[in-house]
Design a protein around this nucleic acid. Structure first.
Lengths: 154, 154
DNA sequence: CCATGTCATCCCATGATATCCCATAAATAC
DNA sequence: GTATTTATGGGATATCATGGGATGACATGG
């Protein structure tokens, strides 16, 4: 499955197009769908994205955890999957962010792509800086909870 | 998985390129990504690096231990993975160190690669000497805490 | 059924920057 | 002594992000 790392800030032109970082495009290349899938997380003011395989796995996870007719499963499915969009790359590797997605993330003319493993996020630059500072503190608290693993933690 | 040993000091040219020690390149060869992955550790003025499999395993460990929407998981991935970079080797086995990484480690025209097992570090030469002297003292204190291992000690 | 405007997609151009490719020199192996 | 590998330097080339114009699809209204 695709893997996303690093942070990139790109411009959104007046047509609403934005270049997906080349490394992210390379990460999803070879998958079933030549593009990315975006959805709005319920608890963050950003856009989340991944390749198609990630969303399929997420859907299966909802079913396996809760069962096919469970209300929790229905709520998560309706919130995340029903509101998702798949965006194809244009020949230059750009996508068009839908208006509702840009509003949800507070994106106007600049978008920050943040790779966080199997998925990535898209933020307005100033919102991301605030979020990142907050997460740094939380990460320092959470790190000791990790169990030892071969190779050690960073 | 890759394993890194020993210390090497190489030049950083005016384009920002630096040769990765040949033994380190050999250690990551055969992996999915022909290069290395770097990130800035919380509490050290250096760069840490490993192969791609190291970060993939770390990321998947976060997901498995905390669940896909857990706040601790989000904090750790946002802090470590978002600040990481993947650097591919050029045909001569060099990589380009990003400016923020060089500044964080105080690297200008010389970089010291330090293999420490499953990962390695990159230091400015004078910062590394000070760090190494400090670690020698701490190692002497820590060694007695090791428990006996089946099969005897080295 | 056709005309029209809107929107999205494609295609080309551009500057910056990173990547490739070749050359050199030192060290090591045979 | 010769051949390889390695680290290093510099010029040439390709890639990437970005902007704008042209072409096409679609729906709406006449």
């Amino acid at each position: 499955m695709a893997f996303f790392l690093s942070t990139f800030t790109n411009k959104v032109d007046k047509k609403g197009r934005v270049s997906v970082p080349a490394t992210f495009r390379a990460a999803v290349a070879g998958g079933a769908f030549p593009g990315i899938v975006l959805y709005r997380p319920f608890n963050l003011a950003c856009i989340e994205g991944a390749d198609m395989a990630f969303l399929e796995r997420l859907s299966d996870q909802f079913y396996d955890e809760f069962g096919p007719f469970n209300p929790d499963q229905a709520a998560l499915t309706a919130t995340i999957l029903a509101g998702a969009v798949q965006l194809a790359f244009d020949p230059e590797g750009r996508v068009m962010l839908p208006g509702e997605f840009k509003e949800h993330a507070g994106i106007t003319d600049t978008a920050t792509f943040v790779g966080i493993g199997r998925k990535f996020q898209i933020w307005g630059p100033e919102a991301f800086e605030a979020y990142q500072a907050d997460q740094f503190v939380k990460a320092a608290e959470a790190a000791p909870k990790l169990r030892p693993a071969k190779g050690g933690q960073p």
